[in-house]
Computed example of a mutant assay.
Amino acid sequence: MAWTWPTMAFFAIIAATLAVFTMLAIRYPETPRRGILRMETTRGDRLFIGLLSMAFINLAWLGLTDITQWAGLAISLLFLAVVFKTV
Rank of each mutant, 00 (worst) to 15 (best):
A16K: 01
T42I: 04
F10R: 13
T7S: 09
L62V: 12
F10D: 10
V83E: 05
G72T: 01
F10P: 00
L47Y: 09
I36T: 12
V20L: 13
G72Y: 00
A2V: 06
V82D: 03
P6W: 02
T31M: 08
L47R: 01
F56T: 09
A19L: 14
A12V: 11
R38Y: 12
T41P: 02
M39N: 02
V82W: 12
D66M: 06
E40D: 12
T17G: 13
V20Y: 11
L59C: 10
M23S: 11
R46P: 00
G44W: 12
T41E: 02
F56P: 00
T68V: 06
T17S: 15
R43A: 05
A25F: 04
A16H: 02
L52K: 06
E30A: 12
M23A: 15
S76D: 06
I75T: 04
V87N: 10
W70T: 13
F56Y: 11
T4N: 14
T31P: 00
M23E: 11
L77W: 03
L24M: 10
M1S: 10
P6A: 03
P32R: 14
L24P: 00
F79R: 06
F10I: 09
I26M: 12
G44V: 05
G44K: 03
A19D: 06
I67K: 03
G50D: 00
N58Y: 05
G50S: 14
T22C: 07
E40W: 10
W70M: 14
G44A: 07
F10Q: 09
R33F: 05
A81Y: 05
I49V: 15
N58L: 11
T7I: 09
E40L: 12
D66Y: 05
V20A: 14
V20Q: 01
F84N: 13
I13A: 12
T22A: 15
I67M: 08
A2C: 00
P29E: 01
P32D: 10
A81W: 07
D66T: 12
R43W: 03
T7K: 07
A15I: 13
E40P: 04
R27W: 08
G50Y: 06
R43V: 00
A25Y: 04
G63H: 09
F10H: 14
M54S: 15
Y28M: 04
